[in-house]
Nucleic acid binder design. Structure first.
Lengths: 162, 162
DNA sequence: ACACAGTTTGCAATTCATTTGCAACAAGGC
DNA sequence: GCCTTGTTGCAAATGAATTGCAAACTGTGT
């Protein structure tokens, strides 16, 4: 196991572009600040309620229909809703964030299995790393350990249809 | 566990932006094509050999020094080297890819523990999901399952220095 | 040496996701 | 009413990554 070594500090610092686990101290603070459920936010939550699979900003924006608002507003509000803990961000590694509605009191911790051909997404239940995280904490002295885990594969249909 | 549901197919199709596991059939094909180790490629591998932690395209480009080449060339060659199986791409979720040198015969499968404050990276040995993948294959009928897993936390120094 | 095909490079321009500056707005206090 | 604060639309900017194109380079056959 290699020695730790700091990467070059990033010269540019886009607020949410920093390397961050889904929930850290900062978002924890913001989560407490009461924000209102404005019309656009309501509409976005509604869209997420309808499709219960991770959607991109653009997809959500497209699905708004009646209650259309600016794409920038969708971006801003999804960030806000994430901080409020009402929505969970996922990263499938294709460069665009995806969001899922978060049930009340649910920390939303689960993972996905994504088809690499047709992008079908299956939600995977259960999480496999709690004790692993504890081990890492012991081994490396890190605290507040979280993780990001997604599975990829070829779905039955795509495997057949080749 | 929810029903599978295809996302909207992406209208734009940047070659490597597709949702893909580190190694799929396509890269498997390309891996076999013999590509030469040109000067820039050599230099890039050299840089990766020096720093043995995941580096971004930009960091590598900056570290080239003497054997400077265009940043686009760095991007192109890291993609090529990845296809050749000489380099492994990692995604820490901050929007920029990072690369590590891959030892001969090593499939490079390991994960990282990243400090969310100072970006210190520790390589984590061992992988925890082989049997999980088998279970997913059984449960959902997916094949060729791979995964992407990174850990995040607060390193001892940052925890102390707060 | 010479020509030719295929690969690679530099450079500039482009794409795409995401963020941001700014002025106009809305709502809640005082 | 007026002031403060958060929100929105719009346009512009940022930043990673890709790409078109022409020039340079590689190796191969003659």
């Amino acid at each position: 196991m290699k020695q730790p070594c700091a990467l070059h500090p990033h010269p540019h610092s886009h607020a949410h572009r920093l390397i961050q686990p889904p929930l850290n101290e900062l978002t924890e603070q913001l989560r407490r600040r009461d924000r209102k459920i404005t019309a656009p936010r309501q509409a976005i939550l509604e869209v997420l309620r309808r499709h219960q699979h991770p959607l991109t900003n653009r997809e959500i924006h497209a699905a708004l229909g009646e209650s259309e608002c600016d794409l920038a507003t969708v971006y801003r509000n999804l960030n806000t809703l994430e901080q409020m803990g009402m929505v969970r961000r996922f990263d499938f590694g294709d460069g665009t964030a995806r969001f899922e509605l978060l049930a009340e009191g649910d920390d939303g911790h689960h993972h996905h299995l994504v088809c690499t051909r047709c992008s079908t997404v299956v939600e995977v239940d259960g999480c496999f790393s709690t004790e692993v995280e504890a081990r890492l904490a012991r081994t490396h002295g890190f605290t507040q350990i979280t993780h990001r885990l997604e599975f990829f594969g070829l779905c039955p249909k795509c495997a057949a249809g080749t």
